[in-house]
Design a protein around this nucleic acid. Structure first.
Lengths: 113, 113
DNA sequence: ACCGTTAATCGTAGATGAACGATAAGACAT
DNA sequence: ATGTCTTATCGTTCATCTACGATTAACGGT
C-alpha cells in the first residue's frame, strides 16, 4: 500500500546552521507526550488525530497543540482525509536527528578514521 | 593531564520509561547554546568553564545555567581541578540519544545490529 | 437546511525557561 | 589574613510552554 499515505513534501526550514536545526528538532521532541505521539505514529504507519487523543491522557486541544509543534518541526505530517486528518511520522526527518548527532560524536563504537 | 580527565561515573537517572528519558535528553539539547557547548566540548576533549564562556556571546551566569542543564541530563561532566572546573562531554550519553531514536525508527537503511 | 463529528484555534492560568547583574564560595598567591 | 580569580547560585524580569474548556470551521449524513 502506501498509495497516498502522506502529503507531498514538507517545507523544511532552511535553518542552515546545524546547531540551530538540531536544537529546534530537540525542542520539538522535548516532551514525553510528543515522543509518545511519534512512537504511536511509527507503530501504526498512519492514523487520524482522534486515535492519538484516545491514546493519551490529555485533552483534545492539548494533543492538537502537541501535533502542531511536531508538524512545525517537520517530524510529522497531516493530510486532510474527508472528515478527519490523517497523520503520519516523517521518518526521514526523525533520522535527520540521528544524522545531526552523528556529525557531532564520531558515531557509535567503531568509527572510520 | 589526561590521567583523570573526567569524573568516575554519572548517576544517570533511572527513568525507566524510554519516552521520558528521550524527552528529558531532548529537552536538555533543546537550545542552540547548549548544542554549541556540546560541540565545543567534543572538539576539545575537555576544557574549563571559562573557555566556554569566552566562546559564547552570553553572560557567565547564563552559561553556567546551561552547563547545569547539560550536567543534570548527564550529557556533560565537570571535575574540580584546582582553581577551575574541567568539563567534558559524555559521549556515551550522547550516543544514548541515538540509541533511543533507533529504537523508534527502524534505523537508517540497513538495520542490522 | 440542519445536526453531529472532527480537529484547529482562542483565551486564560500556572509553570518553566532564558537572560542578566549581583553576590557567594572555593582555591591559590602574596 | 587579604586579595584575586573562577564558577555557582540568587533574585529578578520577560518570554515561552503546558494544560484546559469553550468556541469555531469544515465536512458528512439525514
Amino acid at each position: 500500500m502506501t498509495p497516498r499515505a502522506c502529503p507531498p513534501a514538507p517545507p523544511v526550514d532552511p535553518t542552515a546552521d546545524p546547531d540551530e536545526e538540531l536544537a529546534r528538532l530537540a525542542t520539538a521532541m522535548g516532551h514525553p507526550a510528543r515522543i509518545r505521539i511519534l512512537r504511536f505514529l511509527l507503530d501504526r504507519r498512519e492514523c487520524f488525530a482522534g486515535a492519538i487523543v484516545d491514546h493519551l491522557p490529555l485533552a483534545q486541544s492539548t494533543v492538537s497543540q502537541h501535533l502542531k509543534v511536531l508538524r512545525e518541526a517537520g517530524l510529522i505530517r497531516g493530510e486532510v482525509d474527508g472528515l478527519h486528518i490523517c497523520y503520519c511520522a516523517d521518518e526521514e526527518r526523525i533520522r535527520r536527528v540521528g544524522e545531526l548527532l552523528d556529525d557531532m560524536v564520531p558515531l557509535a563504537a567503531g568509527d572510520a578514521r
